[in-house]
């Protein structure tokens, strides 16, 4: 059963002529990692904010449809429950961190829920360990690297022990090392617990191999949902909606346009690519 369901959801910011999100329906499976890919202005951030109720609670506009958590409409649930079941970390980590130390930052959320000290303590330890920050509990957030800050922002939401973690463009503000650390964190989240992760990005590079499903968002509409192999087939299609295709996908398209590869043999990761190229070269028989 889906942990989170978006049913026919639309939202238009007040004063805008066009709706930012139009008729979105999506079932999120428990434990999956799903990436929502879309270009600038596609509605990724707005979509993230509808998932934990910030939209429409804090933003003025017209909202229709529903977001269901375990079958219940989040509109009817107490805010404390919504916020503790669905954790949202926004794009810019700088804007979120304001305490004296890493552990206090992570403790802020469970403190707000009024949890007892021992519960807060165990959640802080868990969140820091999952995000790879366990060695830095007393460090000042301002002294951290960009990648560490992003992971701290995520840790400070993980301490809510949410069933669903929503990460809005977590890679966009990071340098390569920060991105590598974050992707490694996603791997360990996947292995460790059945936390469902929804993340957004405007690039399929790097993220494609890490997720179970991909949803394409184009100007507020979902135009494709499925496994990466099903969705990442045409780099032109991705580019036309503003999404950066993986370089290797572009390579495979180039190879097939040069008749060196069949169209069905499109790939976007190194291993598959190596295999397909070598078999295409070595004899050209079989065709698969």
């Amino acid at each position: 059963m889906s942990v989170l369901s978006i049913v026919g959801m639309s939202f238009r910011y007040r004063g805008q002529s066009a709706a930012t999100l139009q008729d979105i329906s999506l079932d999120i499976e428990r434990g999956e990692i799903i990436t929502i890919l879309g270009g600038d202005g596609a509605g990724k951030s707005t979509l993230c904010k509808t998932l934990n109720g910030i939209v429409p609670d804090q933003e003025k506009g017209e909202f229709s449809g529903a977001v269901l958590l375990d079958g219940r409409n989040i509109k009817n649930l107490p805010r404390s429950e919504v916020v503790s079941r669905i954790g949202l970390a926004i794009q810019d980590p700088e804007a979120q961190l304001f305490t004296d130390s890493v552990e206090e930052e992570v403790a802020f959320a469970p403190e707000n829920l009024g949890l007892p000290w021992s519960e807060i303590d165990s959640r802080v330890r868990r969140a820091l360990s999952v995000t790879g920050l366990a060695s830095l509990p007393t460090k000042s957030p301002s002294a951290l690297s960009g990648g560490q800050k992003q992971r701290l922002a995520i840790a400070s939401v993980i301490s809510l022990l949410p069933s669903v973690l929503v990460l809005d463009e977590p890679l966009s503000m990071l340098d390569p090392r920060g991105r590598a650390e974050l992707l490694a964190m996603l791997d360990s989240l996947k292995q460790e617990r059945s936390m469902t992760v929804i993340l957004t990005s405007n690039s399929a590079e790097e993220i494609a191999v890490k997720c179970d499903r991909i949803a394409l968002l184009d100007r507020g509409r979902l135009v494709g949902v499925g496994r990466p192999e099903e969705i990442l087939t045409s780099p032109d299609r991705l580019e036309s909606i503003g999404v950066e295709p993986p370089q290797l996908l572009e390579l495979s398209a180039l190879l097939s346009s040069e008749k060196l590869l069949n169209r069905e043999q499109a790939f976007f990761d190194e291993e598959t690519g190596a295999g397909r190229i070598l078999s295409a070269i070595g004899g050209r028989g079989g065709g698969r």
């Binding site: 270009g39 405007n202 036309s240 503003g242 950066e244």
Partner: peptide, 10 residues
């Protein structure tokens, strides 16, 4: 090209 989507980057 930081923070640009595919079309903007092009």
């Amino acid at each position: 090209i930081a923070w640009l989507d595919a079309k903007q980057k092009a």
